[in-house]
């Protein structure tokens, strides 16, 4: 507990939110990621882009602790994740997925309250502090007015906001988001990116999100490109969202189609273009 508290007070100590060194990870025999190294500062929003199946999800899952079979170092707020208990890790890292849970009778409030899991006792009874955190999260994600509704009855956009509230409620140093906007309408996509920005600024939560939609990468502070399980390149949106880099990253062929697509994607102009 103390370690985590110290880790959380990493602000001012110049500790990175997360540092990854020479990470190799995969499923059983299959090696997906090789030699990944990067770091993220507190309050930094990092987008993860690259072709499908090349390791974006795997990277997030490995950091989230779902793939124990990996080599290399991952330290969150200066602590090596391998030395942390499940509970300690949960206090530092929270997760958001593209698919929402399918519960018949769950309310918004109950789901958000679940974010307090690492902090509550044996039977999950919420303390005042926990309740405050829940209220804050509901407000931040703009779902306070639907807090008592059944999750199943909400729109997709609302559902993702609720899952976001839950992730916020966990008070993490680092939030991992796996294509969180994939299934949302444009309106909700942009709304969501606004929420992300708000959280980063107010709480200093670092965020690593894999994105399908290239034009959304615009909103990030930095972009990481993964290709064939390796870190292809990284940099700010100005550096990365350029024709030659994108073409190399996604193995696009020269031609009219490609040009039209890139014109639309780069610098956020025009129609959506998802690969």
């Amino acid at each position: 507990m103390d370690d985590v508290k110290k880790a959380k007070r990493g602000e001012g100590l110049g500790l990175k939110a997360i540092e990854v060194r020479k990470l190799c990870s995969g499923y059983g025999q299959r090696r997906i990621l090789s030699d990944i190294s990067f770091s993220i500062k507190r309050g930094e929003r990092v987008a993860l882009i690259g072709p499908n199946g090349t390791g974006k999800s795997t990277l997030l899952k490995t950091i989230a602790g779902m793939i124990p079979d990996h080599t290399g170092e991952i330290s969150v707020s200066g602590k090596d994740v391998r030395s942390l208990t499940d509970n300690e890790r949960a206090k530092l890292i929270s997760l958001m997925l593209s698919k929402v849970p399918s519960g018949e009778w769950m309310t918004v409030r109950e789901i958000v309250e679940n974010g307090r899991y690492p902090y509550t006792g044996k039977f999950g009874i919420l303390s005042d502090k926990d309740r405050d955190a829940v209220e804050y999260s509901l407000k931040t994600a703009d779902v306070k007015d639907i807090a008592e509704k059944f999750f199943k009855t909400l729109s997709d956009g609302q559902k993702q906001r609720v899952m976001f509230a839950r992730a916020v409620c966990q008070e993490p140093e680092l939030m991992l988001l796996d294509e969180p906007t994939s299934f949302l309408d444009i309106k909700y996509k942009t709304e969501f990116m606004g929420l992300i920005e708000g959280l980063a600024k107010t709480k200093g939560t670092a965020m690593l999100m894999s994105l399908h939609e290239l034009y959304l990468a615009e909103y990030a502070d930095r972009i990481l490109c993964i290709k064939d399980g390796r870190l292809f390149t990284e940099g700010s949106p100005e550096d990365i969202l350029k024709k030659d880099i994108i073409m190399k990253l996604y193995d696009l062929k020269e031609g009219e189609q490609t040009d039209r697509f890139l014109k639309g994607v780069l610098r956020g102009r025009g129609a959506a273009g998802e690969i």
């Binding site: 899952k61 989230a64 602790g65 779902m66 208990t85 499940d86 509970n87 300690e88 890790r89 949960a90 206090k91 890292i93 929270s94 997760l95 997925l97 698919k99 849970p101 519960g103 769950m106 109950e110 789901i111 679940n114 974010g115 899991y117 690492p118 509550t120 044996k122 039977f123 999950g124 839950r166 966990q170 991992l176």
Partner: peptide
């Protein structure tokens, strides 16, 4: 069973979310 009521509730959200909450 009462002792595992709390992790069960996290598990109801799905396995990935349960793990991220710290459930074994």
């Amino acid at each position: 069973v009462f002792l595992i009521a709390k992790p069960m509730e996290a598990f109801q959200l799905g396995e990935a979310y349960a793990v991220s909450s710290g459930v074994n």
